[in-house]
């Protein structure tokens, strides 16, 4: 069966790639949206922190024999702790200043982190093999589905849903939403807002590292893997609307798919389609698809 005289296998193949990219966009933009909402900081280090996730997983496996499953839990915690340290020592001095300062600081941090990894490991990609239990694939009849890629989509969606549930349906999430809306009043009620901000940054960074570990067996593990991705993720956040949780998840997935399908229909546009959508959305809805006008 052909659609637009393109074999359906190609469509499904690109749909899957789009879904996987979309899953990464969703997890990464979710972290960015969370951080921006509560800290008012545009976390440019997000790509570097994603790369740290992939790299620490690789280092763990290569030098310490830490397997994929342990890394998937341990690495986000470790990278999250580095985030907590960054927030406590640097970011907390910037909250009352213009967004630009947070952007500059985190951009500088990204350069430093990437520079360190380049210094020690060079720019060539390191391979990370797929864990044994997820090797191989399943024939769905209309296409061949590699097990690991299916796992990436499922794991990302579970993490996104878990985060959404925590924020929208629990008491801690109510603190978070209230703190995003009016931190001063939350303090006046006796809520420890500075602690919440630290934890939110740590969690956002841990999400990036989690995406990094998921990405390690799919993409080459190399110091600049994050900076290639993060520009697109920023576009996703702008389209979805800064600070909207559901918006970040839905937009991430949808744009991944749009990007994948563009590769089939008109390949030259596939790397710019997201930015074209961003321009159109900004013209029509400056606050983003799910954002609230200020």
């Amino acid at each position: 069966m052909d659609i637009f005289s393109i074999p359906s296998q190609v469509w499904f193949g690109q749909l899957l790639i789009g879904l996987i990219n979309g899953a990464f966009y969703a997890v990464l933009s979710l972290g960015l949206a969370l951080i921006f909402g509560l800290l008012n900081i545009i976390n440019f280090a997000h790509g570097a922190q994603y790369m740290m996730g992939a790299f620490l997983a690789w280092i763990g496996l290569t030098y310490l024999g830490i397997n994929y499953w342990v890394a998937l839990v341990l690495v986000p915690i470790v990278v999250g702790i580095t985030g907590v340290i960054i927030e406590r020592t640097m970011l907390k001095h910037l909250y009352k200043m213009d967004h630009l300062y947070g952007l500059l600081l985190t951009f500088g941090l990204a350069l430093v982190i990437e520079g360190l990894f380049r210094h020690f490991y060079g720019v060539s990609g390191q391979p990370y093999s797929i864990p044994d239990s997820l090797k191989g694939g399943t024939n769905l009849g209309f296409m061949f589905l590699p097990n690991y890629r299916a796992w990436v989509v499922v794991a990302s969606l579970v993490v996104c849903f878990f985060t959404w549930y925590m924020i929208e349906r629990t008491r801690i999430g109510a603190y978070l939403r209230a703190g995003t809306e009016n931190p001063e009043l939350c303090q006046a009620f006796g809520i420890n807002v500075p602690l919440m901000i630290t934890l939110a940054y740590g969690y956002g960074v841990a999400l990036a590292a989690f995406a990094g570990v998921l990405a390690a067996p799919i993409f080459q593990v190399q110091p600049l893997m994050g900076s290639n991705l993060i520009i697109v993720v920023f576009a996703v956040v702008v389209i979805g609307g800064m600070g909207s949780i559901m918006g970040a998840i839905a937009t991430g997935l949808a744009l991944g798919i749009v990007e994948g399908l563009t590769k089939v229909i008109y390949p030259p546009a596939s790397s710019t389609i997201i930015f074209m959508i961003m321009v159109v959305v900004l013209l029509i809805r400056p606050a983003g698809l799910f954002g609230r006008e200020q």
Binding site: R171, A174, Y175, R177, A178, T180, E181, N182, C186, F189, G190, I191
Partner: peptide
Amino acid sequence: IFASLSVEENLLLPP
């Protein structure tokens, strides 16, 4: 009153 919280969540917000 917090717009991102329901009436009950607003009521239960302050520790």
